[in-house]
Computed example of a mutant assay.
Amino acid sequence: MSRPLVVIFATIALDAAGIALIFPILPGLLRSMAGTEDVSALFGAMLALYAFMQFVFTPVLGVLSDRFGRRPVLLLSLAGSTIDYLVMAFTPYLWLLFAGRAIAGLTAANTAVITAYIADITPEAERARRFGLFQAFFGAGFVMGPVIGGLLGDISLRDPFLAAAALNGVNLSIALFLLPESHRPERKPFDWRALNPFAPLRWALTFRALIPLLAVFLLVSLVGQTYSTVWVLFVTDRFRWTGTDIGLSLGVFGALVVIAQAFAIGPVTRWLGERGTLLLGIACETVALLILAFAQAGWIAFALIPLIAFGGIGVPVLRSLQTNAVDRERQGQLQGVIASFVSLAAIFGPLVFSWIYALSSPGWTGLVWIVGVAIYALAVLIVLTVPNNAGQRP
C-alpha cells in the first residue's frame, strides 16, 4: 500500500474517532447546560443541524477541491475541526454549543474530499476494494470513539471535546507533513456559481447514467438510518437489553463491519461482479430486517448482527459504480453529491423512523423494520434496471 493511501486511511480513522468521541456525552452535556432532564427535542435538533450543514457544504468542499486541490481543502477542514472542538470544550453558552455543532457539520463534510482523493490515486479496477477499506477505517474510528468518549465523559463532560481536539490536531499534523497533493488544480477561471450547494446536485441529476445509481444510494442510506435511530429503543423495549448488552452489540457490529469491508468485498466482487455484489448486500440486510421484525428472543437479534454487517458490502461497490461513470476532473464534485445524499438521509431518516416507531410501538415495535424492507424492495427494482456494465465510461 502506497504512503499516500496509508496516510489518508489514518486520516479517516482519526477523523471518525474524533467525531464519535462526543456522541456518548452530548445528551448529558445538554442537560447540564439547559438545566432540564428532557433534552430529546434539543438533541434531535442538534443532530438535524449537524446533518443539514453536511448536506449544504459537502458539495461545496468537493467543488473547491476540484478547483484548488484536495490537500489545502482537507487541511483547512481539519484545522477548523480542531478549533471548533476547543471552543465547545470551554463554552458555557448553549447557543455557542449549537454553533459549534454547526461548524463541526461543515468541517465533517471533508468526506467528499477524502473519497475524491482515493479515486484520484486508485485504478478503476481497485476502487471497490479501496472504498471498502475507506468504510473499514471509518468504521474502526467509530468503534473506538464512543468507547473512549464514554470513559472520558464519566470523568468530565468536557474531556471528550478536548480529546477530539487533540485527535484532530494529530490528524492535521499528519496530513500537513506527510500527505501529498493527488489532483492537479484546474487552471481555468473559477466560476463562483459552482459554490451553490445545489449546483452539483443539478449536474448529477442531468447525468443519465448516474440517476439510478444515486437513487439506489439514497434509498440504501435511508435504510441505514433505521439502525442508528431505533436500534437502542427496539432492543430495550422488546428484549429488555441493558446498557452493557447494547454496547456489546454495537461493538460487535462495528468490528464485523470493519472485517467485511476490508476482506469480503474484493473476493465477492470478483465472484459476482459489482451489480451482483450490490444485490447480495441488499438481500442479506432484507432477510435480517424481516427476521428482526418478528424476533421474540434477544439472542436472535444478536445472531443477526453478522448478516447486517455483511450486507454493508453493497455501499462501497455502489460508490465504485458511481465513480467509474464520471471523469477524473469531476470526482470531487461527484463525491460531494454522494455525501450530500448521505446527509439528506441523515436529516430525514431519524425524523421519519422515530415517528413510525413512536406510532407503532404501543402495538408492534417491528413495523419500522418492515418499512426498511419495503424501501429495499424499491431499491432492488431500480438496480435491476441498471445494466451489468453500468458505471463504465465509453
Rank of each mutant, 00 (worst) to 15 (best):
I305H: 01
I313W: 05
F161R: 04
F131C: 08
F23C: 14
L201W: 04
T11Q: 08
P306T: 00
R202W: 08
T269W: 06
W241G: 07
L280G: 03
L334P: 03
I382P: 01
R70D: 06
A163C: 09
G145Q: 14
A116P: 00
E37K: 15
V317M: 04
A288W: 05
I308G: 04
F207E: 13
A164E: 05
L151S: 08
A125P: 03
V252L: 00
K188C: 15
P92V: 06
I83M: 10
F190H: 13
N388G: 14
Y376N: 11
L21P: 02
P267Q: 11
Y50F: 05
V147T: 13
Y227F: 15
F263S: 12
L96E: 14
G243S: 06
F98T: 07
A358F: 11
G35V: 09
V6T: 14
L178I: 07
V220G: 00
A116K: 00
L176D: 07
T236F: 05
A128F: 04
G149Q: 05
A295K: 03
I313H: 04
N110Q: 09
F207I: 15
D327M: 14
Y357L: 06
T242C: 08
F68E: 08
T111K: 01
E274A: 11
A136E: 03
V39I: 12
R31P: 01
L290C: 10
L86E: 07
G251C: 07
R193L: 10
T58S: 13
G150K: 07
S354G: 12
A16C: 13
I265R: 00
A41E: 15
I246C: 00
I305K: 02
L29E: 12
P4E: 02
S65E: 03
F234E: 04
P316G: 02
I370M: 02
A109H: 07
L384Y: 14
L94V: 12
A358S: 08
Q322F: 09
A293Q: 05
